[in-house]
């Protein structure tokens, strides 16, 4: 089939002036004490936060199917629920999804917990200067994807 017989595809930009694009700015995501909380940032509870007590809650949480653990937030205060979840390595997005809370709210609570020393915020694979993954990381992702 030749391209002329195909239905006409709408052309992007045909009906408007050249876009006046607002420059993209980097804001947000950084907490009061400099923790960077991107959606994929890993956080984990510190030993101090999980020492003593809470074991029963941990076991219960582990047994519960993860997708239904939105109920965790209803049986304990939000901050406590986050620390419990963080007995495993979790990402910011994962915590928001499991507790059924908006990302922005979770980020504020995580920031407070980090300031209190109850959770540790880990770095991501993002290069420090550029804000983009570096070549070494991209090469690793490529090899990882090829192995799938």
């Amino acid at each position: 089939m030749s391209s002329t017989s195909r239905k006409h595809l709408p052309k992007r930009g045909a009906d408007r002036k050249p876009a006046r694009v607002r420059p993209y700015s980097l804001t947000g995501g950084r907490t009061r004490f400099g923790h960077v909380l991107l959606v994929e940032t890993f956080v984990g509870a510190t030993a101090a936060a999980t020492a003593g007590g809470g074991t029963a809650a941990l076991d219960a949480a582990d047994e519960r199917r993860e997708l239904t653990s939105g109920s965790l937030a209803s049986i304990m205060p939000e901050m406590r629920a986050i620390v419990e979840l963080c007995r495993r390595m979790r990402t910011v997005a994962e915590i928001a999804a499991l507790l059924k809370m908006p990302l922005g709210v979770v980020r504020v609570l995580l920031s407070d917990l980090a300031d209190q020393g109850k959770i540790r915020v880990y770095g991501t694979g993002t290069g420090h200067g550029t804000g983009r993954p570096d070549r070494a990381l991209l090469e690793r992702v490529l090899s990882g994807l090829r192995r799938l």
Binding site: T91, T126, V141
Partner: peptide, 10 residues
């Protein structure tokens, strides 16, 4: 399960 180190997240 290892809270002593985080994987690289991208």
């Amino acid at each position: 399960a290892d809270r002593t180190r985080a994987p690289i997240a991208t």
